[in-house]
Structures are given as structure tokens and as C-alpha cells.
């Protein structure tokens, strides 16, 4: 197990993620929520999962986080199966889920507490994380004193705490208003470009997916399956100005067309 001193410098390559013929049904007799999913995600790649509700995009993330089981197929992060409590996997939800009895600093420290890590190394790392997400002026504040965007920054710092090689993001910006969402999304993209953690982003915003990703996986519903695998060949670092380019619009259109008729109501 890597000590904090070893993981202080960012890991520049993430883990490879593979899903092979993955099958998942929630209850017998129903359409599978994931049917024969094959996916290979390269180390350091940022891949978005988009699609209507019921397409299994959140289910896929939960499987990768080791939170739920699946009936058939193989899933691997690096050379290991998904499992709860893997320190090399960071997880971020739509809600910030901060503990109101902990300050910003203490919230970021939570993963270290649970992992039983303490000492000066941990304190330094927590300081760095808070600086990284730009909250150094709010270290001792309580969660209720923060705006939605700031709360999500704390959540991001916490997800990065143990320096995971893989980041699983379940619509992390969708509870924010449009302006903040775009801004935080872009900021995360820049962190990703710097840190190179393999990242899977679940989102229902096609422009967000195009702006952030290397690849967009469009999923159809009933049963959940891959309907398109679109490469995003926009230059990095990504900038807000890319939205106006014709290439951006073409990619967005390609994803949109792949999802036509996949609004979830059509079996």
C-alpha cells in the first residue's frame, strides 16, 4: 500500500478500465439495464457516458465502484476487479454530500480518517488539495456557509484525496446552474489534463461531454447498450472558445443523432 509520502506527486497515468460482455438485470423478467457491454478505456482517458434515463449509465458507474453486482461478463480496473473501498478509485456524486459537522478541511480529510492515515503528510496533502480546488480562503468554513459550486469543489478535493488513478463522476456538475457548471467542468478538465487520471463522467449534457471528453459513449435504453462511440478530436487544453467551432458542433450533432429515438420511452 502506498504511503502518503509516495503518492504526494500526482500519478500521471491512470488505470485501464475494461468491460467485457457485461450483463446486468435488476429484477427477473425485466429488460436488462445493461446488455452485452464491451468497453475499453485507455489509461488517462476521459470518457463520457451519455444517454436517456434507463440506459444504465449510473449502473455502470456503480458496478465500477464495486457498489453493485452484475450477472455476467468481466470488469477490470487495472488488473483487479471492482471492489468497495479501493483507494485507487475516486467517486463523486451529483450532490456534494458534505458532513455538516465537519469544516471544509475536515471534510476533505474524511477519506484519510476512514483509511486510518494521519500525520503531517496528511495535513500537507489536505492543504494542497484545498488549494488545488481554490478554497484556501474557506478552509475553516462549514458546508452550509458555501455556495453549491464551492460545496462541489470540496467534494472534488475529497474525491482526489487518496490520489486515485481512476475517477468516477456521476453527474457531478448537474445540480449547478449553467454558468457555474460550465466553469467547474472546464476547471476539472484542466486538472484532468494535468493529472492524467482515467476518468468516466456520467452526464446528460452533450455539450459538457464534448467539452470535457476524449471519447463519448452514447448509450441507448431498454435494454442499455452502446449505440455510438464518438471520438472527440478537439485540441487540449480545452477552452470555452471551442464551443463556437464547427468541429465542436459536428461532434455534438453526431452524438445527438446516435441518441435519436433513444429517449427511453421507446423500447
Amino acid at each position: 500500500m502506498a504511503s502518503i509520502a509516495e503518492v504526494r506527486e500526482p500519478v500521471l497515468t491512470g488505470e485501464r478500465i475494461t468491460l467485457h460482455r457485461v450483463h446486468k438485470t435488476y429484477s427477473a423478467g425485466e429488460q436488462p439495464v445493461l446488455k452485452d457491454i464491451n468497453l475499453e478505456i485507455e489509461p488517462g482517458e476521459l470518457v463520457s457516458l451519455v444517454g436517456p434515463s434507463g440506459c444504465g449509465k449510473s449502473t455502470m458507474l456503480k458496478i465500477l465502484a464495486g457498489l453493485i453486482d452484475f450477472e455476467a461478463g468481466e470488469v477490470a480496473i487495472g488488473d483487479q476487479q471492482p471492489q468497495e473501498g479501493r483507494r485507487d478509485v475516486g467517486f463523486m456524486l451529483q450532490q456534494a454530500v458534505l458532513m455538516p459537522w465537519r469544516s471544509v478541511r475536515e471534510n476533505v480529510k474524511l477519506p484519510f480518517d476512514i483509511a486510518g492515515l494521519k500525520g503531517q503528510d496528511v495535513e500537507d496533502r489536505v492543504d494542497q488539495l484545498i488549494e488545488l480546488v481554490g478554497l484556501d480562503h474557506a478552509v475553516e468554513k462549514s458546508p452550509w456557509e458555501l455556495s453549491g459550486g464551492m460545496q462541489q469543489r470540496v467534494s472534488l478535493a475529497r474525491a482526489l484525496a487518496l490520489d486515485p488513478k481512476v475517477m468516477l463522476l456521476d453527474e457531478p456538475f448537474s445540480a449547478l446552474d449553467e454558468f457555474k457548471r460550465e466553469h467547474l467542468g472546464l476547471e476539472f478538465t484542466h486538472m484532468h489534463e494535468y493529472m492524467g487520471k482515467t476518468t468516466i463522467l456520467v452526464t446528460h449534457s452533450i455539450p459538457e461531454a464534448v467539452m470535457m471528453s476524449d471519447r463519448i459513449i452514447a448509450l441507448g435504453a431498454h435494454p442499455g447498450r452502446v449505440v455510438a462511440d464518438v471520438k472527440v478530436d478537439l485540441p487540449r487544453p480545452r477552452t470555452a472558445g471551442l464551443v463556437g467551432t464547427s468541429r465542436f458542433q459536428e461532434i455534438a450533432q453526431e452524438v445527438r443523432e446516435a441518441l435519436v429515438g433513444e429517449d427511453g420511452s421507446i423500447a
Partner: peptide, 26 residues
């Protein structure tokens, strides 16, 4: 206790006593 918070604690591999003292009790 928020379901999302429980999920979060599971992803950190928190033990039952850890979840009780760091989440449920407060």
C-alpha cells in the same frame, strides 16, 4: 441518514463502526 452519504462511505470501504461513529451518530 442520507443514502448518498452511505454510498460515499461504502466507496471508502468504511467499516460498520466507522460508518456508525463518523456518519450515523452525528
Amino acid at each position: 441518514v442520507d443514502d448518498n452519504a452511505r454510498v460515499l462511505f461504502r466507496t471508502y470501504g468504511a467499516s460498520t463502526p466507522q460508518t456508525f461513529f463518523k456518519l450515523t451518530l452525528p
